[in-house]
Amino acid sequence: MPEPEKNVTVQDIEAIARKYPAEKRFALAIMQDVQREFSYLPQPVFEVIHRHIGTPVAHLYALATFYKALSLKPKGQNVIKLCDGTACHMRGASNLSKGIRAALDIEPGESSADGLFSLELVNCVGSCALAPVMVINETYYGKVTMESLPAIIAEHRRASCEDTAASCETEVVA
């Protein structure tokens, strides 16, 4: 289980929540901001938002499990979104999924043991003409092939290691 990147405090979450007026309709927006900041929704989120806008904790929790943009589990430093929209599916997205499993030993929805990567199978990122498409963090990769895959992953692994001096001795030469 990867460690959450940052130690999230109630104050951090409150600061995000307070950017929005105390109206029920902002529940999703607040959670999305928290998600973006911390890569997941830590448990205190629901209590904080409840205090701010009044929506019951259980209902907020339900929202968090209903919307795919939100996650209750911490994600890896690099989030690989492998598009499994129709165009990508037809052009071999499932094979790429196998390729990623081979390279990182993770299934969709999981994070790698070193916390560097997590993999999500997503529905159509709207770049169908470039299928199959993979998005790592905010960078789009079009027409990804089994050949180009290892280099893309290696590039992000290298960048993460430089950034955070994370333990990278586990690097596997693909």
């Binding site: 019951p56 259980a58 339900a62 499990t65 209903f66």
Partner: peptide
């Protein structure tokens, strides 16, 4: 539960 105002349970996942 919601009508009562407690809202302790909800439909989870989809």
């Amino acid at each position: 539960c919601a009508q009562l105002g407690t809202g302790a349970i909800a439909a989870v996942n989809r």
